[in-house]
């Protein structure tokens, strides 16, 4: 891949990489470290090869591997970071803002309660909108297993959210 092309591809993939790293590591600083390492790798000699699927999937796989390395090194339990500043700019109407705020923090809390593998596949599909083929690449699992893994994760989150709703007066 040419330098200018690579820069463009990185520009497009970086926000996804950061979001994934943030979910896996739970800290902005660590997420930025993982992303930095992945960017350096992209410029290096064993960089992306189009035969390996989309650039985004390749890049996310590199980010994920760095995150797993960092997590092993630091032995730290990830905490989900919840950024309130992104709300404020997103919507002007205070009432919808409040409703969304509440719903989003509910989803974030229940998502955080799931096992890491389920959290991860949900972020890849629901938040980053990857196809099953791309998810298989990122997680290095057989493509045929993505649907059942994802479905289990969705069901688990749905169960938790339903239980929350039932608890309400």
């Amino acid at each position: 891949m040419e330098r200018a092309q690579l820069r463009l591809a990185l520009e497009q993939a970086a926000p996804s990489g950061y979001a994934l790293a943030l979910q896996l590591l739970g800290s902005r600083e660590d997420a930025a470290d993982a992303l930095q390492d992945a960017v350096v790798r992209a410029f290096g000699s064993d960089s992306y090869d189009p035969a390996q699927g989309t650039f985004k999937a390749w890049f996310l796989a590199v980010v994920r591997n760095r995150c797993l390395d960092l997590r092993r090194q630091r032995q730290r339990r990830p905490q989900v970071e919840f950024d309130e500043t992104t709300f404020a700019a997103a919507d002007a109407d205070p009432e919808t803002l409040l409703a969304r705020d509440e719903q989003a923090s509910l989803v974030a809390t229940e998502l955080a309660g799931l096992p890491a593998e389920q959290r991860e596949i949900l972020i890849l599909r629901e938040y980053l909108d990857l196809s099953y083929a791309e998810i298989a690449r990122v997680l290095s699992v057989p493509a045929g297993t993505v649907m059942s893994r994802l479905h289990r994760a969705r069901s688990a989150l749905a169960d938790r959210l339903r239980r929350r709703d039932d608890d309400r007066p």
């Binding site: 970086a14 950024d83 992104t86 969304r100 719903q103 989150l157 749905a158 959210l161």
Partner: peptide, 18 residues
């Protein structure tokens, strides 16, 4: 519908940007 709501809910999460 329930599964679609899960997808929409996670998709709308305000994850911090770089």
């Amino acid at each position: 519908d329930e599964l679609k709501a899960v997808r929409a809910g996670v998709g709308a999460l305000p994850i911090a940007q770089l």
